[in-house]
Write a protein that binds this DNA or RNA. Structure first.
Lengths: 234, 234
DNA sequence: TTCGCGCCTTGACCGCGATCAAAAAGCCGG
DNA sequence: CCGGCTTTTTGATCGCGGTCAAGGCGCGAA
């Protein structure tokens, strides 16, 4: 119990992650099998093709999910934020590689032990199902973007999504909003199905139009949200 | 009970669909709320943006899931085969439109009633979770294809996937395999993020190379599977 | 400070796939 | 068998985004 207090009840994502399904008492079980783990930017937690071995909740930082072709082309197929779940219960091989985009902190569980907890807590399994539905919706939205949007639309839509995600859903706002991208230009390109040069040029175009500003390599300021939405095709 | 025998125990997808989680006896409950429904090619079961109202198992035929931009561009984000589940439990609005690609037969459930069945049958909820994971993997694979494959690779990979899906996983075979596509060229284009003309040209190229034959508008014969796999980039 | 190393930007050019246009092939009800 | 429709194929051209190649900028270490 004391342990649970220290490690779980105190957790930054206690109520947002799947664990929100559990009472403080029940957390003791999870706590016994969970292990905190840190990864540096660029380190990989799960490799596509290897057998599922761990599940985890992300506590801090951002990670990416990537799929790749035989000849080395890569596509980012999802981003993972704090309180999100990664990995899969039940045997099988991982379909995607999970890599840290920044230094990250994780709460990891051996797969089999995590399954046992799921077994005993139907409410947690339900939360996992609901999250998986949400992930599927997001993936399908991204398929629409990859297949049908122009480069300019992709970049504009991506900036809007990052602004809303990164800074907690401020209302369709007025005035400049500034935030930092957790991604390099190359990673933006990997998400959007473009090249690094095209991403850079589209950002340059938005900047030249006064729609955004680019303070430092990672910063973005949205100066005219309406224009950005128009560029995204809404 | 007699009803269940007639409608469920007898069902073409009895053991493959989610209902496989239920005993013959338990099927009675489902049977009471389920309703058979037919749709003609082109008719729509669920519209994106409307509230979830029905869930269903597909009994026969093929359906498509589509997402669209504000200005009318469309992308097929998934295909639905017999025994697959469509719709979502729990309130919310549908993210995709579900439309029949051929005449189809469905077993539909009012959403709330379906939730109640899920509630009582944890094993069924687990099957749904596992299917949703599979759908997510498939969506992510398609994201890789949309973002990183050339037109030729997309078409070749698509034909291989259809061959394996349509005719039950024959071993990486020898000799010609023939099957019918459940899709028009336009629908293939919507799946692959291409135009109708490009799809037609890529098929023409494969035909000219002797890799495939195109008997009739819908038929495809794979004459040289190894060459097709090479064209798909494996 | 200067060097070196990532990462980003910018420019020039090219090719793939979209677009526009028209002919050919199925398909169905007379 | 024909006429009218849809779907597919084929052709000609264009432009977006990829590719190749420099150059700039920021940052940490020597």
């Amino acid at each position: 119990m004391m342990n649970a207090m220290l490690v779980c009840a105190d957790c930054a994502v206690r109520d947002k992650a799947l664990c929100g399904a559990l009472s403080d008492g029940e957390l003791a079980a999870l706590n016994r099998i969970g292990r905190r783990r840190h990864l540096r930017r660029g380190e990989t937690l799960i490799w596509a093709g290897e057998d599922n071995a761990v599940c985890a909740n992300l506590l801090s930082g951002v990670m990416k999910l990537t799929a790749g072709t035989a000849d080395g082309r890569e596509q980012i197929v999802g981003l993972v934020y704090p309180a999100d779940f990664v990995g899969r219960p039940w045997p099988g091989e991982a379909g995607v590689t999970v890599t840290a985009l920044s230094d990250v902190e994780l709460c990891t569980f051996p797969r089999a032990a995590f399954e046992a907890v799921l077994e005993d807590h139907v409410r947690m399994e339900r939360l996992l199902l609901q999250r998986t539905f949400a992930a599927l919706d997001e993936a399908r939205n991204r398929m629409l973007a990859l297949g049908r949007l122009s480069a300019g639309e992709k970049v504009a839509a991506f900036l809007l999504a990052m602004a809303d995600r990164g800074s907690g859903c401020r209302a369709t706002g007025f005035g400049p909003v500034t935030f930092d991208l957790p991604l390099t230009r190359g990673e933006m390109a990997e998400i959007l199905g473009l090249t690094i040069e095209t991403v850079s040029r589209q950002l340059g175009r938005l900047k030249a139009a006064g729609t955004i500003a680019l303070p430092g390599a990672r910063g973005v300021t949205i100066r005219d949200r309406a224009a950005l939405e128009a560029a995204a095709g809404n």
